[in-house]
């Protein structure tokens, strides 16, 4: 916390904007769809905002964005309109109920899912102008590994991978980790396990993933991949209720176990960004 209030000395030596921006960006991704990636993004953002941080969630799931559904927020202006010159960027940024800002790609942007170079440039330009206004930017990516996801992840200094203990979700998470390691030479991926039955299950899963990585991927790699377990979100009936109500956990049931887990996750994410940023 004190780091946020008192930025380190070397902050005065201006790093390039790109690098400085990058350090604040966290990509939230998952192998398989349906593991709660967007739900985690939104609730994590709210928990970070509660800690006094200025948070933006950028829904970069250009193919099938659904942050709006989770937040019960239906903005008329999306990134699509900014790209096409119909609207100004400022008008596309909305205040979400949890005290953070959101910028939606727009569900109709399927044509961008192949990501032409112009779109990349637009995206980068927008990121560069946005990031200085925030302490943390969460990029909610699409599921799987499309070039859009890889591109979104490449703009982030940290990757937060959301998985569940379910076997297919885990296989997909493992495949995603391999791709990120191979294609982006990433050495650090942060893992959060959603819907765990018992405390400690998530940590065991991350350990297991790490062991498989060590044996099959890291053994002859020059840039070994290290997984960092960031926490478990317990399977909690309150989550379903919040989703049904289209509310954040902080609104519908602030004291529930999942909400507490989000708070802990937020604290870890905050120190991660500050420690590895700048």
């Amino acid at each position: 916390m004190s780091d946020v209030l008192n930025p380190p000395q070397d902050e005065a030596v201006e790093p390039t904007l790109a690098l400085k921006s990058r350090s604040k960006v966290i990509a939230v991704t998952s192998g398989k769809g349906g593991v709660g990636k967007t739900f985690v993004s939104a609730n994590l953002a709210a928990a970070l905002a509660k800690r006094g941080l200025r948070v933006l969630v950028l829904d970069a799931d250009l193919g099938l964005a659904n942050l709006d559904v989770v937040l019960n927020l239906y903005p008329k202006i999306t990134l699509h309109d900014v790209f096409t010159g119909k609207s100004k960027l400022e008008d596309a940024i909305y205040k979400a109920p949890g005290g953070f800002s959101v910028l939606l790609a727009g569900s109709g942007m399927v044509e961008y899912s192949r990501l032409a170079p112009e779109v990349r440039d637009d995206f980068l330009r927008i990121m560069e102008s946005l990031v200085p206004n925030y302490d943390i930017v969460l990029l909610d990516t699409g599921a799987g590994i499309s070039d859009v996801v890889l591109f979104a992840v490449s703009m982030a200094s940290e990757v937060l991978l959301v998985a569940t203990p379910e076997p297919t979700a885990l296989t997909d998470a493992y495949a995603t980790i391999k791709v990120l390691g191979a294609q982006q030479k990433r050495q650090r991926i942060r893992v959060v396990i959603n819907q765990v039955a018992r405390t400690g299950d998530g940590n065991a899963i991350t350990t297991q993933l790490q062991q498989v990585l060590d044996r099959f991927v890291n053994k002859d790699s020059e840039h070994p991949l290290k997984l960092i377990h960031m926490g478990d979100i317990p399977a909690d009936p309150a989550v379903r209720q919040a989703i049904m109500k289209r509310q954040l956990l902080g609104q519908s049931d602030p004291g529930c176990p999942a909400a507490l887990a989000m708070t802990q996750l937020a604290s870890k994410v905050e120190s991660a960004v500050i420690k590895h940023g700048a």
Partner: peptide
Amino acid sequence: VSADEKGMLFGHHLFGDPASGG
């Protein structure tokens, strides 16, 4: 993801006793 990797991924600890660590 090879069969060997899957085998190891679902090998142990996962749904077992968390106390056994990892």
